[in-house]
Computed example of a mutant assay.
Amino acid sequence: MNRRLPRPAPVRRPKAAWRQAKGGAAFKAGHAAEWIAALWLMLRGYRVLGFRLKSRAGEIDLLVCRGHVLAVVEVKRRATMEAAMLALKPDQHDRLIAAGEAIRRNRPGLQRLDLRIDMVALAPWRVPRHLRGVERR
């Protein structure tokens, strides 16, 4: 009686619990930062059109408009306000422009608006900073 034993299932290593907790906490903090930024912009007269919009070019944290301006808003939350204001890199700026153009191209009501890249910088115990028309560095 030479029976063949079944092969054991491959061992899948679970992510370390601390790493999962860290990732979940960062995800929640990012969502909270985006809500704070949206409220801040609404207080200043902007209308929020969308949260976390995805396109082939990338993801837009917030899409807002006021008057004839359509603003693609990147939200950056860091330990200091200075670090948050410097967190937008040139390649990310290019992706935001491409994503904003893609969203605007697919929505006829937005095509007449001027596209602009904005940023909201957040830091603990500091008033949010809204930077309008962020240029590529």
Score class of each variant (00 low, 15 high):
Met1Tyr: 04
Met1Pro: 08
Met1Gln: 05
Asn2Trp: 02
Asn2Gly: 15
Asn2His: 10
Arg3Thr: 09
Arg3Ala: 11
Arg3Glu: 14
Leu5Thr: 05
Arg7Asp: 09
Pro8Tyr: 01
Ala9Lys: 12
Ala9Trp: 01
Val11Cys: 09
Val11Trp: 04
Arg12Thr: 02
Pro14Gly: 12
Pro14Cys: 04
Lys15His: 08
Ala17Glu: 06
Ala17Asp: 03
Trp18Thr: 13
Gln20His: 02
Gln20Trp: 01
Ala21Glu: 03
Ala21His: 03
Lys22Gln: 12
Gly24Cys: 02
Ala25Cys: 01
Ala25Trp: 15
Ala26Ser: 06
Ala26Thr: 06
Ala29Asn: 11
His31Cys: 08
Ala32Tyr: 05
Ile36Trp: 02
Ala37Gly: 01
Ala38Asp: 10
Leu39Gln: 15
Leu39Gly: 12
Met42Leu: 03
Met42Glu: 15
Met42Ala: 14
Leu43His: 07
Gly45Cys: 09
Gly45Val: 10
Val48Ser: 01
Val48Glu: 01
Leu49Asn: 11
Leu49Gln: 07
Phe51Asn: 06
Leu53Phe: 00
Leu53Ile: 11
Lys54Trp: 12
Ser55Lys: 10
Ser55Ala: 12
Arg56Met: 03
Gly58Asp: 11
Ile60Lys: 00
Ile60Gln: 01
Ile60Ser: 02
Ile60Pro: 02
Leu62Tyr: 04
Val64Trp: 02
Cys65Glu: 10
Cys65Phe: 01
Gly67Pro: 10
His68Thr: 09
Leu70Ala: 07
Leu70Asn: 06
Ala71Lys: 01
Val72His: 07
Val72Lys: 07
Val72Cys: 09
Glu74Gln: 13
Val75Asn: 06
Val75Cys: 11
Lys76Ile: 06
Lys76Val: 07
Arg77Lys: 11
Arg77Ala: 06
Arg77Asn: 06
Ala79Asp: 13
Met81Lys: 10
Ala83Lys: 12
Ala83Asn: 10
Ala83Arg: 11
Ala84Ser: 05
Met85Gln: 15
Leu86Asp: 13
Ala87Gly: 00
Leu88Ser: 02
Leu88Thr: 07
Lys89Ala: 02
Pro90Ile: 07
Asp91Trp: 09
Asp91His: 15
Asp91Pro: 08
His93Leu: 07
His93Asn: 03
His93Tyr: 12
His93Ala: 04
Arg95Thr: 08
Arg95His: 09
Arg95Ser: 14
Leu96Ala: 04
Leu96Glu: 09
Leu96Gln: 07
Ala98Met: 06
Gly100Met: 13
Gly100Gln: 10
Gly100Asp: 08
Ala102His: 04
Arg104Gln: 14
Arg104Ser: 04
Arg105Tyr: 07
Arg107Trp: 06
Arg107Glu: 14
Arg107Leu: 10
Pro108Thr: 14
Pro108Met: 09
Gly109Val: 04
Leu113Asn: 13
Asp114Leu: 14
Asp114Gln: 14
Arg116Ile: 02
Ile117Pro: 04
Asp118Asn: 09
Asp118Thr: 08
Met119Gly: 05
Val120Asn: 05
Ala121Cys: 04
Ala123Gln: 10
Trp125Pro: 01
Val127Gly: 00
Pro128Gly: 03
Arg129Gln: 10
Arg129Ala: 03
His130Ile: 06
His130Ala: 00
His130Phe: 15
Leu131Glu: 08
Leu131Ala: 08
Leu131Thr: 07
Leu131His: 03
Arg132Tyr: 01
Arg132Phe: 02
Gly133Met: 09
Val134Lys: 05
Val134Leu: 14
Glu135Trp: 05
Glu135Ser: 02
Glu135Met: 05
Arg136Tyr: 07
Arg137Leu: 01
